[in-house]
Design a protein around this nucleic acid. Structure first.
Length: 771
DNA sequence: CAGTGAGCGAGCTTCCGCTTGACTT
């Protein structure tokens, strides 16, 4: 370290790039985020000593702290270059405290973009640590600790061990619980959507189809039949044609939240997957920092985007835009997420990395392009038999603008009408009717959250930070409060009425609805914990709680409020409520009584048991033990009916005999099964263990036996331990207790033992390399 | 791999935000 300059930043990747800009006179090191935190023993807060925090360096941070201590003692100046936000300021302060830095040689600097110019400017404008901002962070930290470490033990006592609660996670669960209940209570209704198809003759043999929709929906079927009857003999005339031009603007560049949403919708990535991939791109220097709430682009990025757009698409596609962040509580310590070098429209790397990069590149470029110009045409059609109007609308793009590279997607279903070019039509044209369809359309309940839409909601409410969206979603899944899964749809009948060739026909069609893919569902324990917290801790469960305390943190940051006083005011009432709830609340297992068992006349109830939700018939008494059964996947304490509960006791059941041995059908931890001579055969989703016939059971068992007989594709006399087997994911090599993948292009029947040895040796090498 | 369900008590669990690996499949 020449001239004794030590620069400390938060991330090692940032340290690397800054190191290049600053040259050899500066040694740039990373703190890897926070270097110390509240002690985990007890609260880590000395309540009686004016909330004195007990900070300790955790074991995994000891090494880096020792290194920084040594380097800083040798340095003449230590530049604290953590992010310019509440957490960054606190990191700098903790460094001063822990490294015991002489205030004379510790200088605080900040920069928002990583360019040589910005960094040099920062170096020439150092400041002191902002104690108020640090105190705002301490208030945030202590509040979260107090809430988390006093609420969680209460749940252990009142509900079950190892549960958790916190300012962020508990309201996140609440969002999902409330949405599920909205869906359960939703009263669906239906009305007929009526569309008319007209055939329009163009030049020569050309024909166009024009689809128009009745300007309202009709609830009643007899009213629909009535209208269609009238329209049988009607003539249809174009009453009005209007054209209106409109425009569409691009979305701002990505923040963490919008990247997670779009990668989820467009690429099907989970929130955690997106973040892992983005981290890799960031470490490889391909994109800017991926945990950000800012939509700002650096001047140099604006410039290089503009160059690129002009040369690739032309001047008319360029519109330089500077976006402003509107998000609640945004701290904007970084730029938006963008390619590090705009001129790289693609990168090398794994397929998912490439896809994510492509998404980021397109979104960034599009954000600097001109609006798309559209033209919307609306045709109003009247008829001779009634006063009803049909409307046809279409939209065409007159100038594509940013749509040339990027189109944002949406989770809501798209309307089928209102798209594309309409045939050439003028007022008073007579339209020949082809047919009229009336389809029964049901109203739909609000959609369940996906990971992506949940993150969107959290950001809107100002709950959580870019660095916590992904971990929060995984925590509440780990605690068993929510589950991400697919659910099959249900069937229902739809009335479909057609008027064609002067005939009215009515048919009943079946449609599936409500099928879900990778959606978030609350579990029983999630709902029980949620209801408990809602009952006793209304303030913390309020969606505005974070926003309210954030206002106070801002006051502290501005020096208008003392942080310990804020904490004291909060803790005083909160702690009293904890103590009170400890005494007044009962231990809850979420019990619900379903009714009486018609056979025994005993009480049937559902509740949370030691191993999950269960149904119970009868109460525990000296004479008799109650009967128990676990509830099934997809069932819940809240929704299960008496009938469904009683069905659970019909299993396991004897299906019949196969070659003298009994076949038993049941449902275990891994789903429905058939058991024959202590061997298990999974029952496929198309069948039901309650109704599966003996004949069908034979089929299922034989299919599985057949599959097992075909399991061995090839074996070797030279080495009996090695076999080529047919597995769930295709053929693979089994050697002893280890499995290896077959390389692409090799036919499993033709592989030699030499080739296998090579594959095994190659895989061993790879493992060693990783270490 | 395909169960379980009493009560007691010891010892454990837990928060949010900053940051990466070190693990396994």
């Amino acid at each position: 370290m020449k001239d004794g300059n030590l620069v400390i930043v938060e991330s090692p990747a940032k340290a690397k790039t800054i190191g290049k800009f600053l040259g050899k006179e500066f040694l740039v090191k990373s703190s890897f985020g926070h270097i110390r935190d509240l002690s985990k023993k007890n609260l880590g807060i000395d309540i009686d000593n004016n909330y004195k925090p007990q900070y300790i360096v955790s074991s995994e941070k000891k090494k880096i702290v020792e290194e920084l201590k040594k380097l800083s003692s040798e340095a003449t100046t230590v530049w604290l270059a953590s992010d310019e936000d509440r957490e960054g300021e606190a990191i700098a302060w903790h460094l001063v405290e822990t490294l015991k830095l002489d205030p004379a040689k510790a200088k605080r600097i900040v920069f928002h973009e990583i360019t040589a110019e910005a960094i040099k400017k920062a170096i020439s404008n150092p400041r002191y640590i902002d104690t108020n901002l640090v105190n705002a962070q301490q208030a945030r930290r202590l509040l979260d600790r107090l809430v988390g470490f006093e609420l969680s033990p209460l749940l252990w006592k009142k509900i079950k061990p190892a549960l958790s609660a916190g300012r962020v996670q508990s309201v996140t669960v609440k969002l999902i619980v409330e949405r599920e209940r909205e869906i359960n209570h939703f009263k669906t209704s239906s009305a007929f959507r009526i569309t008319a198809d007209f055939i329009i003759k163009g030049k020569g043999d050309k024909k166009y189809k024009l689809v128009a929709e009745l300007d309202k929906r009709i609830r009643n079927k007899t009213d629909v039949l009535d209208l269609l009857g009238k329209l049988k003999s009607a003539t249809f005339i174009v009453e009005n044609v209007t054209k209106k031009s409109g425009k569409k603007s691009p979305s701002p560049p990505f923040t963490t939240s919008t990247l997670q949403q779009e990668a989820g919708r467009k690429l099907g990535f989970s929130v955690a997957q997106t973040m892992t991939l983005a981290q890799k791109l960031y470490e490889a220097g391909k994109i800017t920092y991926m945990r950000t709430d800012s939509v700002n682009l650096s001047e140099s990025a604006l410039y290089s985007s503009a160059q690129l757009i002009q040369s690739q698409f032309g001047k008319e596609y360029l519109q330089t835009r500077r976006y402003k962040t509107k998000t609640k509580g945004a701290q904007e310590a970084h730029e938006a997420i963008r390619p590090a070098y705009m001129e790289n429209s693609s990168i090398s790397g794994s397929a998912p990395e490439k896809k994510l990069y492509d998404l980021i590149w397109k979104r960034t470029i599009a954000s600097q392009m001109s609006d798309a110009i559209t033209e919307k045409t609306v045709i109003t059609i009247s008829n001779s038999s009634s006063t009803e109007k049909f409307i046809a609308s279409g939209e065409v793009i007159r100038f594509d603008g940013f749509l040339k590279v990027y189109m944002e997607s949406s989770e809501e279903e798209e309307d089928e009408t209102g798209k594309g070019l309409l045939p050439p039509i003028t007022v008073k044209d007579n339209l020949p009717l082809e047919k009229i369809d009336a389809i029964e359309k049901y109203t739909t309940p609000p959609p369940r959250y996906s990971e992506a839409s949940l993150v969107k909601k959290l950001e809107e409410l100002g709950i959580g930070r870019p660095s916590t969206y992904a971990p929060t979603i995984s925590t509440i899944q780990q605690r068993g409060y929510i589950i991400k899964e697919d659910r099959p749809g249900k069937n229902r009948n739809v009335v479909f009425i057609t008027l064609e060739n002067n005939l009215i026909k009515e048919i009943i069609k079946s449609e599936t609805y409500g099928a879900e893919k990778a959606k978030l569902f609350p579990t029983d324990i999630g709902m029980i914990v949620n209801d408990f917290l809602e009952q006793y801790f209304t303030e913390i469960m309020n969606y505005n709680f974070t926003a309210t305390v954030e206002e106070e943190f801002d006051q502290i940051a501005e020096g208008k409020m003392e942080w310990t006083k804020m904490i004291d005011r909060f803790y005083h009432t909160f702690h009293l409520k904890i103590k009170e709830t400890e005494t007044i609340s009962e231990k809850t297992r979420g019990e619900r009584i379903l009714g009486t068992d018609p056979v025994s006349g005993k009480k049937v109830s559902v509740k949370i048991g030691r191993y999950g939700p269960l149904v119970q018939i009868g109460d525990a008494s000296e004479k008799e033990k109650p009967r128990f059964a676990s509830i099934l996947k997809g069932q819940s304490i809240e929704n299960i009916t008496l009938e469904e509960a009683l069905d659970l006791f019909k299993l396991p059941r004897n299906v019949g005999k196969m070659d003298g041995d009994e076949i038993v059908a049941g449902i275990g931890r891994f789903g429905p099964y058939l058991r024959l001579k202590n061997k298990f055969y999974s029952i496929p989703k198309t069948d039901d263990p309650l109704s599966v016939t003996l004949e069908r059971a034979f089929e299922i068992i034989r299919a599985k036996q057949e599959q097992e007989n075909n399991r061995i594709i090839k074996s070797f006399d030279t080495d009996p331990k090695i076999e080529i087997l047919n597995g769930r994911y295709g053929p693979y090599i089994s050697a002893g207790n280890k499995n290896y993948r077959l390389p692409k292009g090799i036919k499993p029947e033709e592989i030699t033992s030499e080739e296998i040895m090579k594959i095994i040796a190659g895989s061993e090498k790879k493992n060693k390399k990783k270490k």
